[in-house]
Amino acid sequence: MHEAASPLSRTPAVSARSRVLPLLLVATPVLLALWLVIWPAAEAVILTFLVPGEGGTEVWSTANYARFFGDSYSVNNFTNTLWTTAVTTTILLVIGLPLAIYLRFAKGQLPATVQSLVMFPMFVPSIIVAYAFIRTLGPNGTVDIFLHAVGLPRMRTPYLTPWGPVIGLVWDGLPLTVLLLLSGLGNVTRPAVDAARDVGAGWLAILVYIILPRMRSSLLVTLSFNVLGIFSSFTLPYLLGPAAPEMMGPFMQRTFGDLQDVGMARTQAVITFAVCLLFGALYVWSIAKGRTKSAAGGKS
């Protein structure tokens, strides 16, 4: 009797546990994120709208934001960050996409070598990249010496100009870009490409009608990851960029650590956060869309 009853009585208990366990597992990171990210971020957003009023009270006001957007120096830093992010992301996609397509479809030993070369920057810390950059592309660096040796004029070095961080960030961001695009290209099957080619489609047509439509969500993910990384980058703009305009990362650090203007640093952080939030939302949206699509595909 016991033998017969126990498996039956145990079944609901097991399924209850199997329902609770994943929730418990996910609870730790969710609680950590709430405590260490969501809560401080929400607090920062609220505090930027509170300014000291009369008699030690605090009043709701947008004065901090008026100060930021009314200050041409801060606005220049903000637009410089937008510019750097846009240019770097564009260059990354322009270089990364052909590379990823090549790595996806080429055969033989060479693509493996190319792939390991592409991944190489991932293992180099950005402080090393910055100093290597100065020695190579900086004034009287390796490139200059080479140009001089073959009788060409010296190049205008990008070091300490807005292009310095762009070049550094492209180098730094290439591995992730190619990896993400490569995973998206996994959706593009060789038979689809071959079929298109059989009916006479050229490379451009294959790219526009076969490859890109299947990579839309992967492109969105690449875009948002790069924007998030570049917008908040610190080391490369700090070491390679001009003194002014600054990017938001070094600017925030300086406002907070050097000027000890916590209120303004917080405002800058919230503005940076707002821009990143847009692209974060884009990422979540494209992931969620991919999920529902694959779930729907599974049923049909």
Binding site: P139, Y159, Y238, L239, P242
Partner: peptide, 22 residues
């Protein structure tokens, strides 16, 4: 100044420009 008014990001970055003869 160097590059019509550029400023390095630290003591050692200036030292490097002097060392490179820039």
């Amino acid at each position: 100044l160097y590059d019509k008014g550029s400023y390095t990001a630290g003591n050692s970055a200036s030292l490097q420009l002097l060392a490179q003869g820039a």
